[in-house]
């Protein structure tokens, strides 16, 4: 049944995002052409500017729509009148989380690739690419310190952290929406309040933990390898633990505390 939920979730979201990707593609190609042609004189010189504005706007639209869609699909499809349809389907409640999460991750990744890819297409000149390459090298050098043996480990850790914080953030938004719907008449405000509340508490806890850790591990903090061997793994582990907690509380609310009006 997860497959069917995924299919319908994709349908419901693709109809909004695919057209935006096509618009971005159009402006990307146009912008690439006009920026590398030097033929616009007089009034015509406005054209490259206008196309660039369209290009930037289409990037903004993709970023905004991807983020809002992730939130709105979860809220509207599950906690407004549509919830009557979704929660009476013969599927396990956690499959709703799975399908929404998987599709949200998919579109986030596709949107990131689309935006970065399009920037490359528009901006790629031999000089730019060279500068980019050097920037990347410097970044690596900073991260891995004097030794180059652990570059792969650091790379994997970085990708994992990015991916896990994406999942973590989506699940936190889902949990906040699920908590918010418990409040009759204030569901959306409730969701915002839960999100702010949970992040604030976590911030305070994290600050305290880091402070405590800096006292305990005073001597080794100076060592660069500390980041690879301890800071990153601890971050990854806490992201996983938090995600699991968010997931299970959300499902528990689905099962025990649905509050459809």
């Amino acid at each position: 049944m997860l497959n069917k939920l995924l299919k319908h979730e994709l349908k419901a979201t693709a109809r909004l995002l695919i057209p935006l990707y096509l618009i971005l593609l159009f402006f990307t190609i146009m912008d690439r052409i006009v920026l590398h042609l030097d033929i616009f004189k007089g009034v015509l010189s406005l054209i490259p500017g206008l196309i660039t504005i369209g290009y930037v706007l289409s990037i903004v639209a993709i970023v905004v729509v991807t983020a809002i869609l992730m939130i709105m699909r979860f809220y509207k499809n599950l906690f407004t009148d549509e919830g009557y349809l979704m929660f009476t389907l013969p599927v396990k409640s956690y499959h709703h989380i799975n399908s929404k999460l998987i599709v949200a991750i998919l579109w986030t990744v596709v949107s990131i690739i689309a935006v970065i890819g399009s920037i490359f297409i528009v901006a790629a000149t031999p000089e730019n690419l060279k500068a980019f390459n050097e920037g990347l090298k410097m970044f690596w050098a900073e991260l891995s310190g004097p030794s180059e043996d652990h570059r792969l480990t650091i790379f994997i850790e970085l990708i994992l952290m990015l991916f896990l914080s994406l999942i973590n953030n989506i699940l936190l938004i889902y949990l906040s929406i699920a908590i918010g719907q418990l409040l009759n008449g204030h569901k959306i405000i409730g969701a915002f309040a839960s999100y702010i509340g949970i992040t604030t508490v976590l911030q305070i806890l994290a600050t305290l933990l880091i402070f405590a850790a800096s006292l305990i591990f005073k001597d080794i903090v100076e060592d660069v390898t500390f980041i690879r061997t301890t800071v990153f793994p601890v971050t990854i582990l806490s992201l996983i633990i938090l995600s699991v907690i968010y997931y299970f509380i959300t499902d528990l609310i689905f099962k025990r505390k649905l509050n459809l009006e």
């Binding site: 419901a12 499809n77 009148d81 549509e82 919830g83 009557y84 349809l85 389907l89 013969p90």
Partner: peptide, 20 residues
């Protein structure tokens, strides 16, 4: 649960189909 939802057909008071 999932098993009973297979055999119960429910018409709520709401218009619950996605508008799009």
């Amino acid at each position: 649960g999932t098993e009973t939802k297979k055999i119960v057909s429910y018409l709520p008071e709401k218009t619950y189909l996605p508008e799009w």
